[in-house]
Design a protein around this nucleic acid. Structure first.
Lengths: 135, 135
DNA sequence: TTCTATGCAAATAGTTTGCACTAAA
DNA sequence: TTTAGTGCAAACTATTTGCATAGAA
């Protein structure tokens, strides 16, 4: 992914293409799985301040560029917001992998009726197991 | 739920029935939904030290009495470990409700084959929407 | 040139730990 | 009486915020 495409992505959501934003978005696109702020920062050679990373991720999330994933205990993970999908996490080594399985479409409707909620907009689904290496 | 039953529950998992453990387990059983450490402490009249609550919850979790739920951003929630079930969260007011919907049984097997993991042991599934009050 | 974004440092929130003391068995 | 559990205070980790400066448009 070259810088021009990334700058175009930023322009598409009305964000200034700063060096830091380009670097962060590039990192998110290249590492196509959920990453902690620490890993993201390391991946960019510790060039960005932690506060900048947090603020930029917030901005990206508002613009729909990234998604926050609640998988780890006590630290947020972020991934580029591509297609809706879910993950499987190895409970031994922590490796995270995408899975293409999703809920049957009817389920959100069922949940809405059963719960009495006015509407059901989203769901989070994560699997936990042991990967081949750790087995 | 009277204290005797709670003491029996604790004895059943080989735990000393301290005043604090009885109070905490009682609170978890009465409030049948995921609670933060702060809410739990408040619910018990701020009688227990925060460190004690955390340590006791860890102990309970090891013994299978409680389950940690990853729903909130940046704070852990705990609930009494009854039957396996899922939740729906109101994105406006934060209220959490149980839902009885679950994944079709076949899904974990499908995920195992698709992911290449040695085994798939658990899953987390949470729904997000807007409750009637907030609609 | 203008105004937003960044870096730095300090502040905050949630959680964990060390240690002396209390209480369950 | 013995050993595990608790409270208190301090330590830690992840995240947020204030403010002066740098840089994109």
């Amino acid at each position: 992914m070259n810088s021009e495409k990334i700058r175009a992505l930023l322009a598409g959501v009305d964000l200034r293409a700063t060096t830091q934003r380009v670097a962060l978005l590039k990192e998110l696109l290249e590492q196509a799985h959920p990453l902690s702020v620490e890993k993201l920062t390391q991946g960019m050679g510790n060039a960005l301040d932690t506060a900048t990373v947090y603020r930029t991720l917030d901005t990206f999330e508002e613009k729909g560029l990234v998604r926050k994933v609640e998988l780890a205990q006590g630290r947020a993970l972020y991934e580029h917001a591509g297609e809706h999908h879910h993950h499987i996490v190895c409970t031994e080594c922590g490796v995270i992998q995408d899975v293409d399985v999703c809920l049957p479409k009817s389920v959100q409707g069922t949940v809405q009726r059963a719960s009495g909620f006015a509407n059901v907009n989203e769901h989070a689904l994560e699997f936990f197991g042991v990967c081949k290496k750790c087995a």
